[in-house]
Design a binder for these strands. Sequence first.
DNA 1: ATAATTGCAAACACTTTGCACCTGT
DNA 2: ACAGGTGCAAAGTGTTTGCAATTAT
Lengths: 135, 135
Amino acid sequence: MAQPLRYHTKHRQQILEYAKKNQGKHITAAQMCEYFRQQGKSIGLATIYRQLEHLVEEGLLHKYITDSTSSACFEYREQCNSAHCIHCKCIRCGAFIHVECSHLEDWNLHLQQNHRFQLDFGRTMLYGVCENCAL
Amino acid sequence: MAQPLRYHTKHRQQILEYAKKNQGKHITAAQMCEYFRQQGKSIGLATIYRQLEHLVEEGLLHKYITDSTSSACFEYREQCNSAHCIHCKCIRCGAFIHVECSHLEDWNLHLQQNHRFQLDFGRTMLYGVCENCAL
DNA sequence: ATAATTGCAAACACTTTGCACCTGT
DNA sequence: ACAGGTGCAAAGTGTTTGCAATTAT
């Protein structure tokens, strides 16, 4: 459980900053890598993975896995109160939708009180049909 | 989007049967493959993956991914024709909980009207902590 | 001085695919 | 006959790791 001491490196800071800047979005390691490359301050993909792992361990980022075929997504945690956001996936087009909704807390409360089940929004994916595919 | 017609093959039946027999357990493709091998009726891993994909598409099985490093798990989905039931799974003990709740329809309506997402209860699994594990 | 971080390439594990053949309809 | 299924091996994908050099403490 004892985590090694984390050094305050430039890369760590850049990655965290980029994640913060993209609050509410789901970013993959590859996307980050590409972004930094375009900015002329390339960071090795392995480094990004290692830093993301650290940041998730420290609770600064949240990691989401939707599909075994596609890559994991990371998201800065501060504003994404896990009690207010949930992830939906369209069973037709595969779109990944982030829903922020104050009702979610009520649902969780209801499930807890009436059905004795404590929902974990971070791990739950709602499947259904998105706006475009419903037409 | 039109799914091709699925033939009733021996392998399809064996895979579905095995999944049914293991309701409430989470099984990987590799585990299935090993099981059939031990039974002297080997099925190629690729075939298993292809059939599992079909069965998930048809809504007979549920697929879930917890970790990007480990393999996806499959589970027989209890048939439930009511619009008032949803399935929950405990992330600690793996318990499979069937929740019947009249509120579900309201949630679906809310998601549809406010977030333009049409939830499919049959394919959705809620992850969280069950009564016993919450203690 | 010591411990963590980095980049690269190679290794990894799970999953998908191309192809030739087989089977269900 | 045709569309879908199968097995094998090969390819693909996202992620991790070994190593030697670098950087933070």
